[in-house]
């Protein structure tokens, strides 16, 4: 039975970061989520149990995300509502317009219901096959494919500014929920001197 090679983690960092950003809706939270996931995975030897490395890491990322969210929900709510002001992310891309577009895409994915979001991330962001994604997310392949269809449909319509059709609202078997809560704080960054 294969075990996860810790030395292989760096080559999955970019992909996992994109998945985490889509999951959290925030770059900073994504960075923390990937770090926490890798720290957890590296804490002891990991048996892949026949899974692909990436599928294993996707499952680990999801589990860490859910654990973090459960832990956060037990804490007192922040009394003040703070607004996050992010500088343009020069690290993700050198083109500001492209960066803004990326932010919009990730923010829209983060508003999808959790099952749809996870299906979309596993297949379209991480690049798993339907079977691998279904295994990683503990669901049936058919269910995953339907969630994926709906996630893409909603993403395309949200990004094109089109209103969701009434049929969608009544036919969805899954409750739509708001996306991941954004950790927010007011931040203004200036170049130091």
């Amino acid at each position: 039975m294969g075990t996860l090679d810790p030395q292989s983690l760096p080559r999955h960092t970019d992909r996992l970061y994109r998945a985490a950003w889509a999951l959290c809706g925030s770059r900073e939270d994504a960075e923390d989520l990937v770090q926490e996931t890798f720290a957890h995975v590296l804490a002891r030897p990991r048996s892949l149990r026949g899974q692909d490395e990436l599928a294993y890491l996707m499952r680990a990322l999801r589990n860490t995300f859910l654990t973090q969210r459960r832990t956060a929900s037990r804490r007192p709510k922040v009394a003040t509502t703070l607004e996050e002001v992010e500088p343009v992310d020069h690290r993700a891309t050198n083109r500001p317009e492209e960066a803004a577009q990326m932010h919009e895409v990730f923010a829209t994915i983060a508003t999808l219901s959790e099952p749809q979001r996870l299906a979309l991330i596993a297949v379209d962001v991480v690049g798993l096959s339907y079977r691998e994604a279904a295994d990683a997310l503990d669901t049936r392949e058919q269910t995953l494919a339907v969630r994926l269809f709906r996630a893409r449909e909603r993403l395309a319509r949200e990004l094109s500014g089109e209103q969701r059709r009434p049929r969608d609202a009544t036919s969805r078997g899954e409750k739509e929920s708001s996306g991941a809560e954004k950790a927010s704080y007011s931040m203004v960054v200036r170049d130091g001197s």
Binding site: R18, D89, Q101, F106, E153
Partner: peptide, 14 residues
């Protein structure tokens, strides 16, 4: 949707 999602592949981790 797939076309939009293909564009995020250019995003690199910081």
């Amino acid at each position: 949707a797939l076309s939009v999602l293909a564009s995020v592949e250019s995003v690199r981790a910081p």
